[in-house]
Simulated scan of single mutants.
Amino acid sequence: MQDNKETPEQIRERLRQEELRSNPTGNMNDAFNRANRGNLSDLVGSLGWKGTGILILVIIIGFIIVSIFFK
């Protein structure tokens, strides 16, 4: 017999996902706050594919600017 009750971890994750969908700017703020604590998987997971792409572009552009000005 299967138990259909959610575990506390599943409830927390479901509530977190609902909050991320309903509040995208808070999502970005949460993602950067998680980055300050050093958890990269939470940062990338909470940003989504668009936010991750933007983050990668910013890193690449920053690298190019630094390499141009500090040769």
Rank of each mutant, 00 (worst) to 15 (best):
G62Y: 00
F69W: 05
G48L: 06
R12M: 11
S67D: 08
A31M: 05
I64V: 09
L20I: 12
L55I: 01
V44P: 05
S22M: 15
G53D: 00
K50N: 04
I11R: 11
I59C: 05
K71R: 13
Q2S: 11
E13L: 13
G45S: 04
R14H: 09
R16L: 14
G26T: 13
E9N: 05
T25I: 10
L15P: 03
G48E: 03
E13T: 08
I54E: 04
N39M: 06
M1A: 15
R16D: 09
N36Q: 14
P24Y: 13
G53F: 09
R34Y: 14
R37N: 08
A31D: 00
M1P: 14
N29T: 10
G48F: 06
T7Y: 08
G38W: 06
F63M: 08
F32Q: 15
N33R: 13
M28C: 09
L20K: 07
G51A: 02
G51C: 06
N29R: 15
R37F: 09
I59M: 08
P8W: 07
I65Q: 03
L55R: 05
I61G: 01
T52W: 04
I54V: 10
P8Q: 06
V58I: 12
R16K: 14
E18R: 15
I59N: 02
G26R: 14
R37H: 07
N39W: 07
I61P: 00
A31N: 04
L47D: 08
V58R: 08
